[in-house]
Design a protein around this nucleic acid. Structure first.
Lengths: 230, 230
DNA sequence: ACAAAAGTGTTCCTAATACACCCATGA
DNA sequence: TCATGGGTGTATTAGGAACACTTTTGT
């Protein structure tokens, strides 16, 4: 039951987003160097407070667009972190999300007031110490991403509209950190029915590869593009 | 970015808990009849606002003990619901949990000011209309519970310390709404290594059944493979 | 002796894995 | 013609699913 007391001392509510992308054959996370106290000068996850008239998802998408310039993103709620002393300034509850973005869609210049030096894509296997409990959040996101990769085709969200099966396999190998068998991988992906061949081939120095695209017609049960709660 | 504005108009943060138990061979959810507006007289999930010095988990456990008298509960965070107009009184963000309790541990009398008439265990297949977006929350909890039952032994949390394998099978059958094969079920459960036989037998009108207990040494998280298909 | 629940093995089938060679192209 | 990545099929194995009878007890 709510008491009058509760109504006066309210926590702040923020969103934090673990943004994954694949660049240079590595899984990267977007980090922001903090300008103010607390943890000034330390790296942290992008995020911010929820506006009073927007849903947490919208807040996450807004922050994401501000930092990466990308609008069409796979976004999934991760977990809500609310330990009383996780933020030294006071009570802040953070709804954490993770996002998957195609690196080719990222705009090189960020739109906000941030300097480029303060916004970096960092290799997940080479993370610095992070502000607040953001290391826990990244760890949780990684666990969830890897888990989800085992039984869905989320990996598609990290690729451009047209991609080869080898591209997709590379995404899985990078994230799961293990080599996969080419024939078995293709069998599995094709049997899921989540991709369809474009009739275009990718030209290159060697044999042209068939380009595929994400098949939108598939029911959401097999491949979730939208998260729960409309 | 947070503006000063945000810092003044903060949302309230609540927890709502979907408490499952098995009674009378049915899966039940704990509901509370609301005494005040909004939705006065309607059924709703137990829950309440987070105190300023407690974690969301602690808030959920506190509410849970108030309503059921049970302390030792399986509790898992579900999802955070934060649509701007989900509560007509104003901005309320709710961190939803689900809990599994052994019905034999529930104290018949609730400790709060609630009348017993206003606190009921209701069959999940026979839910009334619920206040707020609580029907969505229950739906989500059910989905998650069923999903988790497929590959873990969470069902154990609904049973007393000692139980027969038939008891456990009944739990799974009730929640998944399907009949399971006795031999396959036992093979699976025993191969997981999550239970161990007590050396006691349950006496009854027929052949005595071996009683089992939950084996604490084994992490319940690791035991089956997930199917590729979602 | 019988009613009622406890307990137990084997066969079948599907799905995952392991594994190696030919193909098409640009240089 | 060769270097490079693209593309394909089969045999084996492991795990899930289907399936029926004997055992033990209380009445």
């Amino acid at each position: 039951m709510a008491t009058e007391h509760d109504k006066y001392i309210k926590p702040s509510v923020a969103v934090d987003i673990v943004v994954f992308t694949i660049m240079e054959n590595e899984l990267k996370v977007l980090l922001i160097k903090r300008g103010q106290q607390p943890f000034a000068g330390m790296w942290s996850l992008p995020g911010g407070f929820i506006h009073i008239d927007e849903s947490p998802e919208d807040a996450a998408l807004r922050e994401l667009e501000e930092e990466t310039g990308v609008k069409d993103v796979y976004l999934e709620q991760l977990y809500t972190f609310g330990r009383p002393n996780r933020d030294p300034r006071g009570r802040v509850i953070s709804i954490a999300y993770y996002a998957l973005v195609d690196s080719s869609k990222i705009k090189p210049h960020v739109t906000g007031a941030e300097k480029i030096e303060n916004v970096q894509w960092v290799d997940v296997s080479d993370l610095p110490k992070l502000a607040f409990d953001h290391e826990d959040i990244v760890g949780y996101a990684l666990k969830r991403l890897r888990y989800k990769m085992e039984y869905t085709a989320v990996g598609l969200e990290l690729l451009p509209d047209l991609f080869t099966l080898t591209d997709l396999q590379r995404v899985y190998e990078i994230i799961l950190s293990e080599k996969l068998d080419k024939r078995n991988f293709r069998k599995k992906v094709l049997s899921m029915g989540v991709v369809e061949p474009a009739k275009i081939y990718k030209k290159g120095p060697h044999r042209p590869a068939m380009l595929y695209r994400f098949k939108k017609s598939k029911p959401a049960s097999t491949f979730k593009r939208i998260k729960f709660e409309g």
